[in-house]
Amino acid sequence: MESEEARRVNRALNKMGKLYREVKSRKLAELGLHPGQDVLLWLLAQEEGGMTVSQLAARLGIEPPTATRTLARLEKRELFRREPVPADRRQVRVVLTQEARRLVPRIEAVWDELAEEALGGLTRERREAVVEALEDAGDRLREQVAEAVLAEE
């Protein structure tokens, strides 16, 4: 890739990332949520019996202390409860409350709005091409992160 093209790619990705996060932040604020909390709640909603903090962190691709901090913010709103794990007294499962479950369709609606606002003006073929390109780029960057983590160990 030539230097000018590389700069254009970097500008576009940086600008898109910032704008996406800003619009998402504003929409989630209407639900009383911050970016990241939406994904955490959505993932928990997929598991009727809840998940341990370690399982949740692994699914989110974050460290357990980060998941714990996010949960601490959500706990103030009573969006989940902690239940003991019968096989391991040191562990607890995080289980969504009914109030949190009612939020999930609203979170999904925010995601639908964001997708429509970002790419809705494109044809189905162009949207598919954009999504494929972003997924491919994400896969390549994920490989680099994994390699860096292995090198540190």
Results as ranks from 00 to 15, higher is better:
residue 68 T to Y: 08
residue 10 N to E: 08
residue 110 V to G: 05
residue 108 E to L: 14
residue 153 E to V: 05
residue 121 G to V: 07
residue 104 V to K: 01
residue 104 V to P: 00
residue 104 V to E: 00
residue 71 L to S: 07
residue 147 E to G: 03
residue 72 A to S: 14
residue 6 A to L: 14
residue 76 K to S: 09
residue 99 E to G: 03
residue 29 A to C: 07
residue 2 E to I: 08
residue 49 G to E: 09
residue 103 L to K: 02
residue 118 A to D: 00
residue 48 E to N: 00
residue 81 R to W: 02
residue 89 R to H: 12
residue 125 E to I: 01
residue 2 E to Q: 07
residue 97 T to Y: 11
residue 137 A to L: 13
residue 20 Y to G: 09
residue 7 R to D: 05
residue 23 V to D: 07
residue 11 R to L: 12
residue 65 P to A: 06
residue 62 I to R: 04
residue 27 K to H: 06
residue 141 L to K: 00
residue 45 A to W: 04
residue 80 F to K: 03
residue 19 L to W: 07
residue 100 A to L: 09
residue 80 F to H: 04
residue 19 L to K: 09
residue 59 R to C: 11
residue 103 L to H: 02
residue 111 W to G: 01
residue 101 R to K: 15
residue 80 F to V: 11
residue 36 G to Y: 02
residue 12 A to W: 06
residue 118 A to R: 10
residue 89 R to V: 07
residue 53 V to W: 00
residue 74 L to F: 08
residue 74 L to H: 05
residue 10 N to S: 10
residue 90 R to Y: 08
residue 100 A to P: 03
residue 150 L to N: 01
residue 18 K to Y: 14
residue 128 E to Q: 14
residue 14 N to Q: 12
residue 35 P to C: 04
residue 67 A to P: 08
residue 58 A to E: 10
residue 143 E to W: 02
residue 72 A to E: 13
residue 72 A to K: 10
residue 112 D to A: 14
residue 147 E to V: 01
residue 13 L to D: 01
residue 134 L to E: 11
residue 149 V to Q: 00
residue 1 M to D: 08
residue 13 L to Y: 12
residue 14 N to T: 15
residue 105 P to K: 03
residue 62 I to D: 00
residue 119 L to H: 12
residue 11 R to V: 07
residue 130 V to C: 14
residue 109 A to S: 13
residue 86 P to L: 10
residue 144 Q to N: 03
residue 36 G to V: 02
residue 121 G to K: 06
residue 51 M to K: 13
residue 49 G to A: 12
residue 16 M to K: 06
residue 130 V to Y: 15
residue 40 L to E: 11
residue 107 I to R: 01
residue 67 A to N: 03
residue 103 L to M: 09
residue 40 L to A: 14
residue 3 S to M: 12
residue 41 L to T: 01
residue 109 A to P: 04
residue 4 E to L: 11
residue 2 E to R: 02
residue 141 L to I: 04
residue 16 M to Q: 11
residue 14 N to A: 12
residue 38 D to F: 04
residue 106 R to Q: 15
residue 53 V to M: 10
residue 93 R to Q: 11
residue 132 E to G: 15
